[in-house]
């Protein structure tokens, strides 16, 4: 049981990185929209796991994306931040419920799931594009990129989410 658990997460990690790098980084929808679907890994990752391990895996995930896309450690900085913030966001979205043993992501309502995902994406994109553009004079450009890429990421993540449902686990 536990070994297959790690196995699934490992395969998910590798597949999401490859899909992100080979497909979504080349999309350039409207010339600038590259959805970042690999955030789904942090959304799907088991809740009960050790936080230290989770933050570390988040860092590795970002770093492996950076490895391919010549972005230095921009993805790593944003993923490590949302990995750290995830429990806070979950407490905000699901209330105290999420600390119970029986809590499962698939048992929550659709609205809660989408809110949770949206908050993760917004936090990630704000950090990513602020660091990438790195100047306050381009605030509008940052905002434009956060909003449009965010919407594209959200839609694709929801589609992927319904394609590969987590119910079985």
């Amino acid at each position: 049981m536990t070994s297959s658990y790690y196995y699934i997460n490992f395969i998910r990690f590798a597949l999401l990185v490859l899909v992100q790098v080979l497909v979504f980084n080349r999309l350039n929808f409207f010339g600038f929209i590259n959805p970042m679907v690999y955030i789904l890994f942090l959304y799907w990752y088991p809740i009960k796991e050790n936080r230290v391990v989770f933050i570390f895996i988040g860092f590795l995930l970002g770093l492996s994306i950076d490895f391919f896309s010549d972005t230095m450690a921009l993805h790593a900085a944003s993923t490590v931040t949302i990995a750290y913030l995830r429990p806070t966001i979950m407490r905000f979205v699901f209330g105290v419920n999420y600390e119970f043993q029986s809590f499962k992501l698939s048992n929550t309502t659709r609205v809660q799931q989408i809110t949770f995902l949206t908050l993760l994406i917004v936090a990630h994109h704000v950090i990513f594009f602020t660091l990438e553009i790195f100047s306050l004079s381009n605030l509008l450009l940052i905002l434009k990129k956060v909003i449009f890429t965010g919407i594209a990421t959200l839609i694709l993540c929801l589609l992927f989410g319904s394609l590969f449902s987590v119910k079985k686990e």
Binding site: R51, V52, I55, F56, A73, L74, A76, T81, L131
Partner: peptide, 16 residues
Amino acid sequence: TSLLYLLLLLISLGFT
């Protein structure tokens, strides 16, 4: 956890 987060964030910011 917070210390690990800060450490990793600093590493990535350093690279960037």
